[in-house]
Design a protein around this nucleic acid. Sequence first.
DNA 1: GCAAGGTC
Length: 909
Amino acid sequence: MKTVLMVAEKPSLAQSIAKILSRGSIRAWGLCSSHSSLEQPSPRFSSPGSMSSHKGLNGTCSVHEYTGTFAGQPVHFKMTSVCGHVMTLDFLGKYNKWDKVDPAELFSQAPTEKKEANPKLNMVKFLQVEGRGCDYIVLWLDCDKEGENICFEVLDAVLPVMNQAHGGEKTVFRARFSSITDTDICNAMARLGEPDHNEALSVDARQELDLRIGCAFTRFQTKYFQGKYGNLDSSLISFGPCQTPTLGFCVERHDKIQSFKPETYWVLQAKVHCPFSVHAGSFQVLLSSFFLQVNTDKDRSLLLDWDRVRVFDREIAQMFLNMTKLEKEAQVEATSRKEKAKQRPLALNTVEMLRVASSSLGMGPQHAMQTAERLYTQGYISYPRTETTHYPENFDLKGPLRQQANHPAWADTVKRLLAEGINRPRKGHDAGDHPPITPMRSATEAELGSEAWRLYEYITRHFIATVSYDCKYLQSSISFRIGPEHFTCTGKTVISPGFTEIMPWQSVPLEENLPTCQKGDTFPVSEVKMLEKQTSPPDYLTEAELITLMEKHGIGTDASIPVHINNICQRNYVVVESGRRLKPTNLGIVLVHGYYKIDAELVLPTIRSAVEKQLNLIAQGKADYRQVLGHTLDIFKRKFHYFVDSIAGMDELMEVSFSPLAATGKPLSRCGKCHRFMKYIQAKPSRLHCSHCDETYTLPQNGTIKLYKELRCPLDDFELVLWSSGSRGKSYPLCPYCSNHPPFRDMKKGMGCNECTHPTCQHSLSMLGIGQCVECENGVLVLDPTSGPKWKVACNKCNVVAHCFENAHRVRVSADTCSACEAALLDVDFNKAKSPLPGDETQHTGCVFCDPIFQELVELKHAASCHPMHRGGPGRRQGRGRARGRRPAGKPSARRPKDKMSALAAYFV
DNA sequence: GCAAGGTC
């Protein structure tokens, strides 16, 4: 029997499609074969309706197997999936060395290669294992350009291991579907086509453009500005065709706020006195108790709005005030009553969910997406990444609704809807990807936890609202004349709340009801006054507004919008303020203003859509892939060179906001070359800067630095500093020069003296090292000479710390080694009063691992946390040192070498 | 260390 391999874009889809095709086969076969207008002869298929599933070798993708017919023959079907893109584009390794490659080379010279997108998933191997020996392949990837591109990634992996076709028989098929419904999937199976190479090529072009342009600009501006300003708190200044315009939106709003000049204006406000009587009508019963209370209040005054709204000249306002003030009565000129409707929402898609999550639930897009994904994988909601706001025609709306009928939060509403009949959902947009986001089963807050619950509650309420009725309300208004001036008063009364019952935050605000009156009626004026007000600036952009702008300009996709927003936060270009408003930082502002100054297209949202237009030509087969790519790269290469030549313009802006390196930081350690003080710059990346030599020395991050007793490195004369990760962590001395320019072959950048193999320096590993770490492979336990009186021995690779010999007044690493485990012996002196040693001893030399006296004085921990090893009973203590302290044969010894000179010579070869 | 796009 021949085998048909089928591949979907994600595991969940493989399962749904396999279920449909394996069970619905007989009906589907009938349906499919009844189509007479097939564009091409399509392989017919059927299956007896049972399917078996197993996990693939990567543990993530499943394989669903069943038998059926295909191309008129009995076959074995294997349905599986990838996890998004199989491959990713990157430069060849040597072009990823920032110091060695001129970013300009990234536009053309630097070759790119496709790498596995997620090596852990082992996707190519997995596809080959499953594809080996298959005869046909049907590609069920999402029906968009990215999906088309993944088709070819799958084919590249699988075709070489599949059986060879006989006599030009077609073996590669593409299924095109627009929803995951029985009809659609069966139709797709009945009308298999071919993957579209042009669409795939347009994605290849997009990938290459994004990579080359993004990396070139990012590397250039990072290298240019990094280390130039002391208080520029960013080690990466990135640029990207999506993230930069996203930042641009935030800065644009900031500029509007900055340039805003408040203007004073004046408003007339009138109050009339009216005996209260409301229209009688059936809607009254629906009004809230608030209204009924108002109704009992017989006399009240009515606030009128001025038809001129406002004037910007005080004297003119005063004139109008004077004229109206003379009048004692307001005359009704017209009345109107209109029934209006507030529409029920469209079915929920991803961006709308993210907007509401941000604006109403205070949940950032990235977080909201993660929460939604968890709800999805746990089966509470449908697939959360979709652009579609239209339920498929045969979508079962009542099923999910019934599941909610006993939910304590909305049982009443749902039961009434089911009893009285649901409303037809509004016609939304069908993007052909996934159905809108809906609840899949009932859940409670206790079950989900408060965060996930809030999102689930919103999704469910939104779903119920889409099958509810519009909210109907009555808008009435009365036009008045007071002297020469006209005033109006409006009121809204809810006729039927419709969907706002389940989405109360959308309710028509309760407004006072208006009195019944007719044209010509008069009301006594109780007050006319003039109010002075000021126009106010807009506020910073909310995340929700930003999402709307990005969607409108085609910046990013439903899945990547949260990533871009997260990026500009993490890169320190904007900060999220209260109300989830995005306030650009100085860095963000300077960058955008810099782009505006040099080449505004770099930050305008139009650039992405212009490129996309070109890419679409490739997809439609109207333009040549190579030509478009070459042409676009050429344009950006020119832009890049112009940007490089004009960078001083951006630098001028930087100078205003940031202070030069030489003017920042506090003097800390002395430079070994000029013997002047260097300055310690705390802003990330923290570093030392010698303004005389104009050299910068990076320091280890995430810790504090102080001077180390003015001790100097014997190799370069730089003053040592002491790095510490905190009182419960570890610390070690460090030479700023050696750490940046490793003196020995076996040392790497960033290392401290505790890893230095200098054979005689008193701060080195050679002198302070004790023995192999008890936990990690390559680490050595090193005495921390500054840690007394709470002495510590810490691993120079991992975070193992041993606390030992508390209150000893001196601890030294001896030249002798333990005969049992080869660890260096420690020489410990205690004060007479505090000595824990037996008898009246104050001094003891021994091995920390093997000496029974020392074993009682050593406590193993992890830096800043308690170590699990220490939880055991007393019995394990004995064996610990003996077994683990021993250095394996062949490993470099941390002991003091016997022949210092020969060892020294070896290092300097 | 960099982009944006899939998805987990």
